[in-house]
Nucleic acid binder design. Structure first.
Lengths: 220, 220
DNA sequence: CACCATTTTTGACTGTAGTCAATTTTGATG
DNA sequence: CATCAAAATTGACTACAGTCAAAAATGGTG
């Protein structure tokens, strides 16, 4: 079977199907966090989710594909907390700095998230979903305000996304300097057209703590 | 068998082994360029190279691994030509700009090279080998000369490498704006601490043509 | 040359991803 | 409730990556 267009299908079938999908997602996340992604087979997942082997493929194309919604939920929850923290801030450079630093710290603390961003051979669009979406918005606002240098979005977005992933891949999978996150942030700000002196200063300001989780931060 | 330490082993055995390795490399490159990487199996390669299936694994760890030396040779040949072009140039920013632009154009024209940089789940070190090594040198020189802002190498290298790969992955695998290469170069220069106005100007100067291939540019 | 220790090659074997035709479930209709 | 067409589920099947014990090749030594 194909992965069906989840649009208007029928009332109950759809909900039952949705429950099975969720069981697969839960089983996959649990097993992958327990044993590591590579040690988990599709069979393991479908056994744990109590569905047939083939059913997996009616919901997801590949084993990696199942990580997209998992990491997307993680990213969304993180983004909501970040948005609460930066909502009142005026300076786009400060918003980008704080977002970048918290994002990198959060990714570093979550091995599954790190694994996804390092190993995924998925299309860029899935990567984007897996790293959270408010970065682009904050950057665009900064450009409109004249705080950042102009930037061709179709190039700038993959440039910065790729840069972050490069650092995560190289630095977060081995021992690394303590200031990796701040140095990365400094380079992001420079990429946006901030002078090095200012980028350096902004990236090293005290980092306000991430707001506590709220109920609706939970995965969708 | 393990992949043996290619160091001093014995005289003739080693040369014979080397010839087999080369046959595998040649067959792999030919088949992959013909049919695309995914459509080529290890069996195809070993059949074409006239060695046993298991022999492949005494030389290379995986199918992707075989692309490292292939792309490394391509990258090295390109780098030698670039070095000839930029040898006499004074301004580090101009060298980086011209190198970046020619490198991206060369990658875009070579589907196998592009594929490798987009799809490889290989360690960063192999990626570095596959994209050529003079970029880091030119950047360091520019920092020493005070032309570029300072940069933490363990962060800066994966940042810029990842950024390039991000652009290649997103832009070079679909239709894209004509100025993708120049916009990328502009962002690279900004990342190095050049102001946007200057980066913009440098990235859009007329691009001197790549020198012709010379004999010793050929793959090692 | 005959023998042997070491290195290299080899293809049968194993485990897993992904496919697909057959089966089951669903809910709409008479 | 019985029937049916459409949708969803399923696990047997195929093809490939990667392993490894056995076989072959090598070259040193008496």
């Amino acid at each position: 079977m194909m992965i069906t267009d989840e649009a208007q299908k029928s009332p109950r079938v759809q909900r039952k199907r949705e429950r099975a999908r969720q069981r697969i997602l839960d089983a996959a996340e649990r097993l992958m966090r327990q044993r590591g992604v590579d040690a988990v087979t599709i069979q393991d997942i479908t056994d744990a989710a109590d569905v047939g082997h083939g059913t997996f493929y009616t919901h997801f194309k590949t084993k990696l594909d199942v990580l997209v919604p998992i990491c997307e939920a993680t990213a969304k929850a993180h983004t909501r907390r970040m948005d609460r923290l930066t909502a009142e801030m005026e300076d786009a450079a400060e918003v980008v700095s704080i977002s970048t630093r918290h994002l990198l710290h959060a990714i570093e603390k979550d091995p599954l998230w790190t694994w996804f961003l390092c190993n995924s051979k998925l299309p860029m669009d899935d990567m984007r979903r897996g790293i959270g979406g408010s970065g682009a918005r904050d950057i665009l606002r900064g450009i409109e305000m004249g705080r950042f240098a102009p930037l061709a979005v179709p190039v700038g977005e993959p440039f910065l996304l790729g840069a972050m992933i490069g650092v995560i891949q190289e630095c977060f999978t081995q021992i690394h300097e303590d200031d990796t996150v701040e140095e990365t942030t400094r380079m992001v700000l420079r990429t946006l057209g901030i002078t090095d002196d200012e980028a350096q200063e902004i990236a090293h300001r005290p980092l306000p703590p991430l707001p506590a989780l709220e109920l609706n931060d939970a995965p969708a």
